[in-house]
Simulated scan of single mutants.
Amino acid sequence: MSASAPNVILRGGPMQPADQSCTRYVDDIESTLKLLVGNAYEHFQPTGQVVEHQGRSLRVFEWIRRTYVAE
């Protein structure tokens, strides 16, 4: 799998509609993922679930919290 190919699917969070998911490539699928979105970080935790998405097996990461960037 190339570094640009998605290996996880992100679910949940206050900004995401329930019927949409976001796919990404992450280096470490066992650690919590922290994404900068505007002035906040969205944190996603890996689950034991794997789903098929567009012909790929992707690890599911669930949203767990938001923290804000210190000014």
Rank of each mutant, 00 (worst) to 15 (best):
H53R: 06
Y41I: 05
L58R: 08
E62M: 09
E62C: 05
T32Y: 00
V51W: 02
H43A: 03
E52Q: 11
T67I: 04
A70D: 14
V37S: 14
V69R: 02
P46F: 12
A40S: 10
S31E: 03
V51S: 06
S31H: 12
R56S: 03
M1N: 11
V50T: 05
Y68W: 00
Q49N: 12
F44R: 10
D19P: 01
L10Q: 06
R24W: 05
R65F: 00
R65I: 05
V37K: 13
V8K: 12
L36C: 14
Q16C: 04
S4L: 15
A40F: 07
Q54G: 11
N7R: 05
G55K: 02
N7L: 03
E71R: 07
V60W: 02
S21P: 01
V51N: 03
D28T: 14
A5M: 04
V69F: 02
Y41V: 05
M15Y: 03
A70E: 11
I29E: 06
D27W: 11
I64T: 14
R11Y: 12
K34I: 12
T67W: 04
G38F: 08
E62V: 06
S31T: 13
N7E: 10
S57N: 11
R65Y: 01
H43G: 01
S21K: 08
R59P: 00
G48N: 04
L33P: 02
N39Y: 00
L58T: 10
Q20S: 07
Y68I: 11
I9Q: 00
A70H: 12
Q54I: 14
L58P: 02
G13F: 04
L35C: 14
D19W: 14
G13Y: 08
L10R: 03
P17A: 12
S4A: 15
T32P: 06
T23D: 10
D27A: 14
I9G: 01
T23K: 03
S4C: 15
M15S: 07
F61Q: 11
H53M: 14
S4T: 15
G48D: 10
M15A: 06
L36Q: 15
T67R: 13
S4Q: 13
Q16P: 00
E52C: 10
Y41G: 04
Y41P: 02
Q54D: 07
T67F: 09
Y68N: 10
D27K: 15
N7D: 08
F44V: 08
R11C: 12
T32R: 03
N7T: 06
G13H: 03
T23L: 02
P6M: 07
F61I: 13
I9S: 00
N39L: 09
H43E: 09
S4I: 09
G38R: 10
H53Y: 09
Q49F: 03
R24P: 00
C22G: 00
T32K: 02
G48R: 00
D27Y: 09
V37I: 08
G13Q: 06
S57L: 06
Y68S: 13
R65N: 05
A3L: 14
W63I: 08
P6H: 04
P6R: 05
A70F: 02
